[in-house]
Nucleic acid binder design. Structure first.
Lengths: 249, 249
DNA sequence: TCGGTTAATTGACTTAACTCAACTACTCAA
DNA sequence: TTGAGTAGTTGAGTTAAGTCAATTAACCGA
C-alpha cells in the first residue's frame, strides 16, 4: 500500500494516510464554503483549491501527522472528530485540542517558518478531512489580496480562543479549572441551565485540563453529589451555572 | 483632569489614561514601522494612523484598561513593559502575558464581536504606548486589501504563540512547567547555555505559571542547588539546557 | 451479539504543592 | 539617605491531587 509520506515508527501506523484512502473530491464539502477562510473565495478558486487537495478518510485512532514533521498541508474537518496532542520524552500524552466538523486545523502553519507541525493529530473516530496544500492557499492569497480579509478574521478569532484557553489553564485548582471548562461549553455562557457534550472522552478532557483521570472522575462525582451536574455518559446537564460558577470562586 | 473614559472603581486609578498624559505624536515611533501589522503600510497611511492615535505615558502600576470594557483601541508598546492579567470574583490576580517594546496587544480585538477587552492591562514600569483606534486600522485594511497580507502573518504567529503557551500549561507538575518556561526564554532553544531575563517579577511569573510564589522560589532554589541555574536578580544563567530539559522529562 | 479491550470509577496511600507565618532584601519616593 | 512598602525566601504544617491497584462499565470490531 503506497504511502504519501512515511510510517510512524512509534505506533506503526501510517502517517499522512494511505493513498487508497483518498475519496471522491467533491463529497461533503458544502460546509467548506461557510468557513471564514474560504467564504470569500470565488467559485473557480475554491474549485481549484479543492482539486489540489485530497479528501481523506481516517479510521478510529489513525494518526494524521506527527509533531515536528514538515507541515506542507493544513486540514479541514468534513466529518468525525480529531484531537491534537503532544508526546513528551517520557511518553506522557497531553491533549491540546479537539476538532469538530467545519473546523480547520494546522492552518496557522501557512506562516510558520520553518513550517513544522507543533503536535500530533489523530482521529478520535472515523473521520473525513480535506488535506489542503499550504502553497496553493498561499498562492490564492497573493493573487487575490482581498481574500486575506476574511482569513484575517479567522486568525484573529483563533488567537482569541487560544488566549481564552490559556486563561483557563492559569487557574490553579483542578476543580476550578474543570468548572470553568464546563461553563465555557455552555452555549449561552452561564446565563441558563443546559446540557453539554464533552468533546473528548473523559480521560482526554482530564489530560486537556492538566489533571489525572482519577481526579477528573472524583471532581465530577463531587459535583454530581452536590446536585450541580447530572451526568449521562459524555452528556452533562448543568442545572444552575451561576451557582456552579460561584462555587469555583 | 479630563478622562477619556472613566475612573476604575476598584483601584481608584484612571483608566484609558488622562488626556494630559498625551505626548508629542511623533516621538519614538521608529519601531512601529518594523512591526508586521504596519510594515506594508504606505508612509501616508502610517502617518494617518499615527495621527488618529494617541501617544500615552503610563506610570508604574498604572491601569490602561479593564477586562470587559468595550474595546475601541488596540496598542503598540514604544517603551517600558506591560502585563495582561485577569481578576476573578475572589480577587485572585492571574497573570496571562507580559508585553515588551515593539509588541502589539489587544490587536485581536479588531475582529471581536462585541469588542471587549478579555483582561486587565497595566504598566509594570513607566511606559509609552500608542493607542490606535480599531476603526481607523480597519478602514485602512478595507481600503487597501493588500495590507491584510502582512497583518495575516502577524495574527498567524500570534495564534501559534498562544498555542505554545497553552501547551506549556498542560504540563501537570509545577517544576516541569517552570523548566519549560525557562528553556523557552532561551534564544536558541535548548541548544546552548545562556542568560535569560525574566520578563516579569518572580511572583508574577509564578502566577503566569499557575503556582504560588513560594513554590516558584523553592523550585528555583532547588535548580540552583543542582547547579543547573545561576540566579542574579531577574537574570538567570542556564548552564546546560539539555540536562535541564532532561530533568523535566 | 459477543467478547476483548479500553475507559471510568472507587479506595487506600503518598507526595507535591498550598497556606500561614516569620524574616530578609530590595525598591522607590520623600 | 532613609524608611515604608513590596518582593522574595525559608520553615512548618496541611491539603489537594497524584499514584497504584482493583473493580466495573462501556465500546468496538469480528
Amino acid at each position: 500500500m503506497a504511502m504519501t509520506q512515511s510510517v510512524d515508527n512509534q505506533h506503526n501506523k501510517p502517517v499522512l494516510v494511505a493513498v487508497s484512502n483518498a475519496l471522491d473530491q467533491t463529497d461533503g464539502l458544502e460546509t467548506l464554503r461557510s468557513h471564514a477562510m474560504f467564504s470569500s473565495l470565488r467559485a473557480s478558486d475554491l474549485d481549484h483549491l479543492i482539486h489540489q487537495s485530497r479528501h481523506l478518510r481516517l479510521s478510529h485512532h489513525q494518526l494524521l501527522y506527527r509533531q515536528d514533521m514538515p507541515a506542507h498541508h493544513f486540514f479541514f474537518v468534513i466529518s468525525g472528530r480529531l484531537r491534537l496532542y503532544r508526546l513528551d520524552s517520557s511518553g506522557i500524552d497531553r491533549t491540546l485540542d479537539s476538532i469538530a466538523p467545519g473546523d480547520c486545523f494546522a492552518e496557522v502553519m501557512i506562516y510558520a517558518d520553518p513550517p513544522r507541525y507543533a503536535c500530533y493529530a489523530e482521529a478520535l473516530k472515523t473521520s473525513e478531512v480535506l488535506m489542503i496544500p499550504v502553497k496553493v492557499y498561499q498562492e490564492l492569497l497573493s493573487q487575490h489580496p482581498e481574500y486575506a480579509q476574511a482569513a484575517l478574521r479567522h486568525y484573529a478569532i483563533r488567537a482569541v480562543t487560544r488566549f481564552h484557553d490559556l486563561e483557563i489553564m492559569t487557574i490553579q485548582s483542578a476543580r476550578d479549572r474543570l468548572i470553568r471548562y464546563l461553563i465555557d461549553l455552555l452555549p449561552n455562557g452561564a446565563r441558563e441551565s443546559g446540557e453539554v457534550e464533552l468533546p473528548l472522552p473523559k480521560c482526554l478532557v482530564a489530560s486537556r485540563l492538566a489533571m489525572q483521570p482519577e481526579t477528573f472522575s472524583r471532581i465530577l462525582a463531587d459535583l454530581k453529589a452536590s446536585g450541580l451536574v447530572r451526568v449521562n455518559r459524555s452528556k452533562l446537564f448543568i442545572a444552575d451555572p451561576q451557582r456552579l460558577m460561584a462555587l469555583s470562586q
